[in-house]
């Protein structure tokens, strides 16, 4: 009897604690989301009332919009190259910095700094570095003997790699810190006993580090993938989708439709296609992850 009362009380208290989130979620997220579903089935622009048009926005997006598919291709390209590079880069950096040597914290700070740089500032810095004819980067490349260095953000072939380089500047950010925290959770004695068994560095990495780090890898991959799919600000500031639409990512296309051409209903339908895709992707990822994430990640 007492136990039961305690549990009820506990559950009420628990809900009380999460109440701020519950209210915030209903007010600032769920409400707007529901409204945007309604809008996605209507034609809505400036100073007019939304007009119900059924599924036609969705049909238009998937069949009648050339730029939709261009933006999908660009985004997939970006995700496919950026996510592995960023994950491996961050992991390598974390392995390097997972030492208690003197002064290592200074290095950690140095590598973290880019990730606290405002994206507008970052874009300005890199546009300036990438400037093909006066830029410092191409000057250095020419010094190294490359007679025709890439034209970076000004060329459709090199604009996406350019944007990836900009983003890779941030590999020492939160992602790397999460790896580092994960590495420091691995008990030292595991390595010691493996050494006694005669394991070399590589064995230790494969059989101890990777499995025990899998929760961190799991978390980092999914957040990186989601961020990468939603890439927006860097292209908005640095290239505005160009040249030749080579950096028109999905979120840029959505923004243009909704805020540049004022097809708000259509923009909402693009957003919902996006969200459903990301959700399915995440669910699939969670499902597959059970096979390789080493121990019960207490996320659920």
């Amino acid at each position: 009897m007492r136990q039961r009362y305690y549990l009820q009380r506990q559950s009420l208290t628990g809900i009380l604690y999460i109440l701020p989130w519950l209210v915030g979620f209903m007010l600032f997220i769920l409400g707007p989301m529901l409204y945007s579903i309604v809008l996605s089935f209507s034609k809505y622009s400036l100073a007019s009332t939304p007009k119900f048009v059924g599924l036609s926005n969705y049909v238009e997006a998937l069949t009648g919009d050339d730029i939709f598919w261009i933006s999908v291709k660009n985004t997939v390209w970006y995700v496919a190259f950026f996510v592995p590079l960023a994950t491996i880069g961050s992991l390598a950096l974390a392995l390097l910095l997972n030492n208690q040597f003197k002064g290592i914290s200074i290095f950690r700070t140095i590598f973290y700094l880019p990730s606290v740089t405002p994206i507008v500032a970052m874009a300005l810095i890199w546009v300036w570095i990438f400037t093909p004819d006066f830029g410092i980067l191409n000057y250095l490349l020419m010094k190294l003997g490359i007679s025709k260095p890439p034209r970076w953000l000004a060329s459709p072939e090199w604009s996406k790699p350019g944007i990836i380089i900009m983003q890779l500047w941030k590999i020492g950010g939160p992602r790397m810190i999460i790896f580092l925290a994960g590495l420091q959770e691995i008990p030292e004695r595991l390595y010691e006993s493996a050494e006694i068994d005669g394991a070399n560095m590589f064995d230790k990495f494969i059989h101890i580090t990777l499995p025990l780090l899998s929760p961190a890898i799991f978390l980092n991959i999914i957040t990186t993938v989601m961020r990468a799919f939603q890439v927006f600000a860097i292209s908005y500031v640095a290239t505005r989708g160009g040249p030749l639409k080579s950096t028109t990512f999905y979120a840029i296309h959505l923004y243009n439709k909704a805020f540049r051409y004022f097809q708000l209903g259509y923009g909402c339908s693009l957003a919902w296609i996006f969200f459903v895709f990301l959700l399915l992707f995440t669910l699939l990822y969670f499902k597959l992850s059970k096979r390789w994430v080493h121990y019960g990640m207490e996320m659920y």
């Binding site: 604690y17 989301m33 959505l254 708000l264 957003a271």
Partner: peptide, 27 residues
């Protein structure tokens, strides 16, 4: 604390990490 739907609600918290900002910006 243990309460009903706790895991579902926490799942919703997590899925908000994947919500594109553009979806709710207009409303």
């Amino acid at each position: 604390f243990k309460f009903r739907f706790r895991n579902v609600l926490f799942g919703i918290v997590l899925s908000m990490m994947f919500l594109p900002a553009q979806i709710i910006i207009i409303p």
